[in-house]
């Protein structure tokens, strides 16, 4: 009996190792390539990590009704500010994840806030068609200014900032966030339950 057991255990262990190697290969294979910087070209920090741990500056951007909204209106929640646009493919890819996160993690104190660097009509259409369940602000220069004050001087998106209930910046991310990373981020900072 123990020989049967150990044969089964060995077989399952072999499957585990093969599966794990496969998972590792997939994860490595899909790592984005770092862009090449030509010699002599100035490099600009895309996300100013020094802002993590600092109070978030006040940022004012209009909502889709043209009403000015302040980030501090959401003080007391874990505010995940996501800068996006309809012309930005990587931004559009992560929207369904954010919608799901709002729906599933809202009870833990999560509040997603979309800030679109785009035209209002295009944003309204996307909000309607994709079923946004979180508020969206929109603008052009105001959004660039907001991003800059939140550590992104390049204006590149997607750009995501997590602000704690106390108004302190906890995390900055330039580039897309996948489901695993988003879950890890929320598990790291948010309380276990609402």
């Amino acid at each position: 009996m123990s020989a049967v057991l150990s044969r089964q255990a060995l077989g399952a262990l072999l499957i585990a190792v093969v599966a794990a190697s496969g998972g590792y290969w997939v994860a490595r294979h899909f790592q984005p390539a770092e862009p090449v910087i030509p010699e002599g070209v100035p490099r600009v920090p895309a996300a100013n990590g020094a802002l993590e741990g600092q109070p978030a500056p006040e940022v004012v951007v209009n909502d889709l009704d043209g009403k000015p909204r302040k980030l501090s209106e959401w003080r007391g929640r874990w505010l995940l500010v996501n800068f996006w646009a309809t012309w930005c493919g990587p931004c559009m890819e992560e929207i369904p994840l954010l919608i799901r996160a709002q729906s599933e993690q809202g009870a833990r104190g999560l509040q997603v806030l979309g800030v679109a660097m785009d035209e209002s009509d295009a944003v309204r259409k996307a909000v309607r068609e994709m079923g946004f369940n979180y508020p969206t602000l929109v603008g052009d220069e105001a959004v660039l200014t907001a991003m800059e004050s939140l550590g992104n001087s390049l204006g590149a998106i997607p750009y995501t900032v997590l602000i704690g209930p106390d108004g302190v910046i906890r995390y900055l991310e330039m580039g897309g966030i996948d489901a695993t990373k988003l879950q890890m981020l929320l598990n790291r900072f948010l309380p276990a339950s609402g």
């Binding site: 899909f30 770092e34 490099r43 590149a156």
Partner: peptide, 20 residues
């Protein structure tokens, strides 16, 4: 393992100065 191999929160972030 994918989490360990991938962009872990606990791995130092890629240098953000790699953008122009």
């Amino acid at each position: 393992l994918p989490a360990l191999a991938g962009d872990s929160l606990f791995k130092p972030k890629p240098r953000a100065d790699a953008l122009l």
